[in-house]
């Protein structure tokens, strides 16, 4: 027996262990996983369908709701009635739904950032349509929004828990490191096992990959809040919930929004990869362009992703700068 052979490290089959875990989950959590898959699937396909052919009343409700929250009920009502009238007028005039939506995205951009961004958004979304990528782009947008919403819904409570309890923070940190740095493709394999090919594995893999910055920045934001201000809340008799919702979260909001921005950007980068497992959308377009070595369609699909990314990024940034804390800081600088 040679020395080299004797010194060899025994082969550990961690992969087999992981496989066993996935197998166990498939066998025992089938109902639960199916439910998740179904919900995610339905949400994405509803949203994608809405983006492909918007329901006028829903659009009007959304616009009305935002205007109501922003400027009070009069403006809200006006926005509701106005968008309802405009929507039906557009439908009567047979304006393509893509154009209505492009205009909608433009108006949202205009309301949050101003003319330049509003017109950019309108033209950029028209460009997506002109490249013949409207449906896949909207499917990607739907997938990103659903995955990001789920990721944020999970990340913010986890971040709050981590900020409050050091133990949670210590446990979560390596888990987050793991989730964020594990090559994204790897998530797709068990996801296919658990949900089969389709939207659900893509969305779940996306949300796992994208969640980490949401947790981290929520925790950071809350921990950065001046402890004296938190103490002031407690000293005046505020309950922990009031301290959290009236003091910690509002003051952590800029950091928290930066986290949400990161979540959305990571989700967007992931959905293209998710195209590999049949999540559809622009990922599909990119993937088929790669497999057929078509430079043109690949570039177009990539450009559409870039447009979505810029739009979502600037929008979340605008939301952040509208938060009361940021405005207070701006007022101080004046």
């Amino acid at each position: 027996m040679s020395l080299v052979a004797a010194a060899q490290t025994p082969r550990l089959h961690l992969g087999a262990l992981f496989e066993a875990i996935v197998d166990w989950m498939t066998a025992n959590l089938g109902f639960f996983l199916d439910a998740i898959g179904l919900v995610v699937d339905q949400a994405v396909s509803y949203l994608a369908a809405f983006f492909a052919a918007p329901v006028i009343v829903v659009l009007a409700v959304i616009f009305g709701g935002f205007a109501l929250a922003w400027r009070g009920w009069k403006v809200g009502l006006a926005a509701f009635v106005g968008s309802l009238a405009l929507g039906y007028a557009a439908a009567a005039a047979h304006v393509a739904p893509q154009h209505v939506l492009a205009l909608t995205f433009g108006i949202i951009g205009l309301a949050l950032r101003g003319w330049a961004f509003g017109s950019f958004a309108f033209l950029a979304f028209l460009l997506i349509d002109a490249m013949g990528l409207w449906d896949p782009a909207m499917q990607t947008l739907a997938l990103v929004l659903v995955a990001s919403a789920c990721a944020v819904a999970l990340a913010v409570p986890l971040g709050i828990a981590a900020a409050r309890y050091d133990v949670v923070s210590r446990v979560l940190r390596p888990v987050m490191d793991f989730m964020q740095t594990m090559p994204a493709f790897v998530y797709l394999i068990p996801a296919i096992f658990l949900w089969g090919v389709g939207t659900a594995p893509g969305a779940v893999a996306t949300l796992i990959f994208a969640m980490a910055p949401g947790v981290r920045l929520t925790e950071l934001g809350i921990r950065q809040v001046d402890p004296e201000v938190v103490e002031a809340g407690e000293a005046f008799g505020a309950s922990p919930a009031k301290v959290l919702f009236r003091i910690q979260l509002p003051l952590a909001l800029p950091t928290l929004m930066a986290g949400i921005n990161q979540v959305i950007m990571l989700a967007l980068s992931m959905v293209v990869i998710a195209g590999l497992v049949g999540a559809g959308g622009l990922g599909d377009s990119v993937y088929s362009a790669i497999s057929r070595v078509q430079i043109g369609p690949g570039f177009e699909a990539g450009l559409a992703v870039v447009i979505l990314a810029i739009y979502l990024d600037r929008l979340t940034a605008a939301l952040t700068s509208r938060s009361a804390v940021v405005r207070a800081q701006a007022a101080a600088a004046r």
Partner: peptide
């Protein structure tokens, strides 16, 4: 009981 703090501890927003 009320309290007044060294660095004021006001809500900036």
């Amino acid at each position: 009981i009320s309290m007044v703090f060294q660095h004021f501890a006001l809500l900036p927003h």
